[in-house]
Simulated scan of single mutants.
Amino acid sequence: MSETDFCDNAWSEGEDAGFIDPVSMEEDPTELFAGDTGTLDAEVRRVLVRLLQRRFLLADKNSAQWRTLLENQQLIESRLHDMFVRLVIDHERGIAHKQQVRSAELDVPILLKDDPYNRAETLVLVHLRTVFQQERVAGEMSARVDIEELEQTVLTYFDPDGTNMADRQKEIRGAVTRLAREGLMDEETAGRYRITPLVEVVMSTEKLSELSRWLRERNDGTGHVVDDTMGDIAS
């Protein structure tokens, strides 16, 4: 066989083996939209966006995205670091969230704004965190609260001389709605909520002790907060 015949045969075999024609830029599968210069796969981008949109990414609620996050952690961290944002992954609890980088030595533009919890939200959080801690100490793997019991407990922190009970209850229900939306409580049946491990991330043991002490100091001995001037707590 001549050298020319060998080359011709090799090329023919290559064609049979499925050589792929060049793909035009317009049909490039890595380009997700016109003019796209991004380098991340679509699923990785979605996880990155979700982390920026939401306070938390939960493994048990978003198992596919959680796997994508762990498989591409360095890439996602790098993109967040470019925006002065830190990625925090709690493998034990299956929780991922972001933190704003702050530095006294570096001029850092603030991307993430603090969205503080108001008085009612903070009081509900204190109760949820207390119940969660008590159940864990007792060896229980989960903790639950009923909306009526939660509402009655939180109401005891308000000024007993307050006359507009409907407004107080509306505040508490609004607090429950926000905390449920953020994943700190999960409504299993009507009016009955499971407290999620997120409550430990949002309110540490130290913060719980601090707030509980603050409430006791403002207590007039009747089990009520003397006034309504409770400051907002950063989330």
Rank of each mutant, 00 (worst) to 15 (best):
Y117D: 00
L48D: 00
T37N: 11
N62Q: 13
R218Q: 13
E135G: 07
D28C: 15
A104W: 06
S2E: 08
L112D: 00
A190P: 00
L69A: 02
K207E: 11
N62L: 15
K98S: 02
V226W: 00
T229W: 11
E43H: 11
H224P: 02
V85W: 05
G174T: 01
Q152V: 05
G94D: 08
T229A: 14
G18T: 05
S212Y: 04
L179G: 01
E140L: 12
E77Y: 05
H127I: 07
S103W: 07
H81P: 00
N9Q: 15
L52Q: 10
S204Q: 08
E31S: 15
Q53L: 15
V23S: 05
T153A: 14
L70A: 05
I110A: 12
L58D: 01
R168E: 01
S78N: 09
S24C: 09
R50G: 10
A104E: 05
D90G: 04
N164K: 09
P22Y: 13
V47I: 06
V85A: 08
Q53R: 15
A138E: 09
W214Q: 08
A166E: 10
P160Y: 07
A175D: 02
D41A: 15
M230I: 09
D90I: 06
R86T: 09
G18A: 08
A104L: 13
Y193K: 03
V202Q: 05
G183K: 08
N118W: 02
T196S: 12
Q100W: 06
F56S: 05
S63D: 12
E171P: 02
